[in-house]
Design a protein around this nucleic acid. Structure first.
Length: 577
RNA sequence: GCCGGCUUAGCUCAACUGGCAGAGCAACUGAUUUGUAAUCAGUAGGUUGUAGGUUCGAGUCCUAUAGCCGGCACCA
């Protein structure tokens, strides 16, 4: 992906292009008034008030055509510097500009003019509109004025501009490729999961998707066992009282599903923590047992806004690969270092790279002492560096109960997803009065970490589907081996024997003995993205061999059954990508 | 929740300004018995998301509603 923000030249191009678009829009819709048109990670947008006019995607070509016309005219772009009074006078008919200008103090106010069009702008811009050649308007949408849902909705047009046709084409190709990899599409084609209008946001897992889930979950349990985690499962539904104690009722009541049991109010858990707190309190804990690592693949439900739902990426029930770690304050750093290394190991198995961000104390909504926050933030940052990782600060973006490290993974198309997070919690140990017995026999308050690595198992699977384009590595593939007899009857016996042998080794295998041509069945296996296809004919039966073809490859290799199985097993064991 | 768009067979899509709902793939049946990306023929498949309305006549126009998609807002 091209990160436009990091490239000054592209930045200027895109911002200038936003003005060009605005000029075109103004010509086509003279009543248009403009709010802001910033450069974003990929391209630019402009927020526009069009009065009663409504834009749809169909209008974009028309606007683009007008843009081409303007850029061909090749007007120079000139900068004008204005006093606040001059600026207010110049834009006196535009309430949006007046709003912007009235908040400007002690800065040089500048406007950029190209032909008949002038817009307030800090700049810089390209010298003439002629330089803008390789751009594309991508989508339209609504956007709240000033990003506040209480405000009126403006119309937003997104676009992107490059210095060369090639870069533009590459970008558009990437968008095409992303469309092909859409997990909703692949989920249907590969029979992984389904959605129903009877349960918006509640995914159904199909047999092949279940296999994927199980493998991922087993992988998760195995790795966490090695890391010294214990596992629990807490109830889906617990009394409202508990959520009042935890504070969730106060903060998230609107997004919780509730029900009555014997005249008492219950809520379906939107988080696993309170249940975990009860488990912790179920027994006495010694300082010798810390850090205590307790994991739970916990199914949580949250009432997400209908417009937020999006395939597996945003759902109303999902499984957090949650864990709570209880420890003493001086164990935090080493535990976090260890955790970062752990997360690194997990992501690398999927060939996912990542960056870490430290989110610090929110300006207003936070609990606890500032000194404790500062200390905690320092510990997290230090741990990050101790783990040899860069750490970008995200000021004010922490949870109200503590600072956190967020892991942003990058998939094979360069798209970024926030998955893992390590959060310090200064709230729950207090609210639930958690204690451990220290070496001197006194009761002390433990420090607590929440952490997830996948984030949500459902969403992580969605990301993996798109990351791999549905062609999962062998160890993850729902069907690993497709056995195809050349002759659907004559070679079937041998195929069945081979299948039994593979099943004994826990290899997921199917035989395609349908009455179809070999080419047809090879094609089917390729389309279903099955990693290994085995063709069995007279030669293979006679010599106790297999003829192996891999997904997306055209060559086929004949080898002995034993050596092939050995290689297959080792590839699975290594979780080779 | 908000703005815009979409919804026709299991899937992908067609049906001019309102005038007989159609194709490919998949499924099923039969023939074929197959050597590395689609063998041939036939059969079946629909209250055009749902509920109203306009009209002689609605997949097509209008209203409402649900779901989905692209964003916005939200995301413990």
């Amino acid at each position: 992906m091209i990160n436009i923000k990091e490239n000054e030249q592209l930045n200027v191009l895109n911002h200038s292009c936003a003005h060009l678009m605005a000029q075109a829009v103004k010509r086509l819709y003279p009543q248009a008034m403009f709010w802001v048109g910033p450069v974003i990670t990929e391209g630019f947008y402009y927020d526009i008030d069009l009065g009663d006019a409504v834009l749809s995607e169909d209008d974009l070509p028309k606007i683009e055509a007008e843009m081409k016309k303007i850029s061909k005219d090749g007007k120079r772009i000139s900068r004008e510097e204005l006093s606040k009074e001059e600026a207010l006078e110049m834009f006196k008919d535009d309430p949006y500009k007046i709003e912007l200008i009235s908040h400007m103090e002690g800065v040089i106010i500048s406007a950029y003019r190209q032909g008949e069009f002038v817009d307030l702008c800090r700049g810089p811009h390209v010298a003439t509109v002629k330089e803008l050649k390789f751009y594309k308007l991508l989508k339209v949408s609504g956007a709240y004025w000033k990003g506040d849902s209480d405000n009126k909705m403006l119309q937003r047009i997104y676009g992107i501009c490059f210095a060369t046709q090639e870069e533009l084409d590459n970008h558009l190709n990437m968008l095409e490729e992303a469309k092909k990899r859409d997990h909703k599409k692949l989920g249907r084609e590969l029979d992984l999961f389904m959605m129903s209008e009877f349960g918006p946001g509640f995914p159904f897992w199909l047999p092949k998707g279940m296999i994927l889930r199980h493998i991922l979950e087993n992988f998760w349990y195995d790795e966490h066992t090695r890391e010294g985690y214990q596992f629990i499962q807490t109830p889906i539904m617990l009394s409202q009282q508990l959520w009042e104690v935890s504070g969730h009722w106060f903060n998230y009541r609107e997004n919780m599903y509730t029900s009555e049991i014997d005249d008492k109010s219950y809520a379906i858990k939107p988080m696993n923590c309170p249940g975990g707190m009860l488990v912790y309190k179920n027994s006495l804990h010694s300082y010798k047992d810390l850090p205590l690592r307790v994991g739970e693949l916990g199914l949580v439900h949250r009432h997400e806004a209908s417009g937020a739902l999006n395939g597996l990426f945003r759902v109303r029930n999902f499984t957090q690969d949650d864990a709570h770690i209880f420890m003493t304050e001086d164990q935090i750093e080493s535990e976090v270092v260890r955790l970062i290394a752990f997360i690194d190991r997990i992501y690398s198995v999927f060939n996912l790279t990542y960056t870490i961000e430290l989110s610090t104390r929110p300006l207003e909504k936070y609990i606890g002492e500032i000194a404790v926050w500062d200390r905690s933030e320092a510990i997290l940052e230090k741990a990050c560096h101790a783990a040899g990782k860069a750490c970008k600060i995200n000021p004010g973006d922490g949870a109200f109960y503590g600072p956190k490290l967020d892991f942003h993974i990058q998939d094979s198309l360069g798209r970024v997803w926030q998955c893992g997070t390590i959060q310090l919690d200064m709230n729950l140990p207090e609210r639930f009065d958690l204690t451990y017995v220290d070496s001197d026999g006194s009761k002390k308050r433990p420090v607590m970490l929440h952490r997830v690595i996948f984030g949500s198992v459902e969403r992580f699977i969605g990301i993996l589907i798109e990351h791999f384009g549905g062609a999962f590595p062998l160890w993850l593939a729902p069907v690993q081996v497709e056995i195809i007899p050349v002759h659907p009857v004559l070679h079937l016996e041998y195929c069945n024997q081979l299948k039994e042998r593979l099943l004994d080794l826990n290899i997921r295998v199917e035989i395609d003995d349908r009455n179809e041509k070999l080419g047809y069945r090879i094609r089917e296996a390729q389309v279903k993205k099955i990693p290994v296809q085995i063709v069995i004919g007279d030669g293979e039966v006679a010599a106790n061999q297999v003829n192996v073809r891999r997904y997306n490859k055209t060559e086929n290799i004949v080898e002995s059954v034993d050596s092939w199985i050995a290689a297959l097993l080792s590839e699975i064991k290594e979780k080779k990508i």
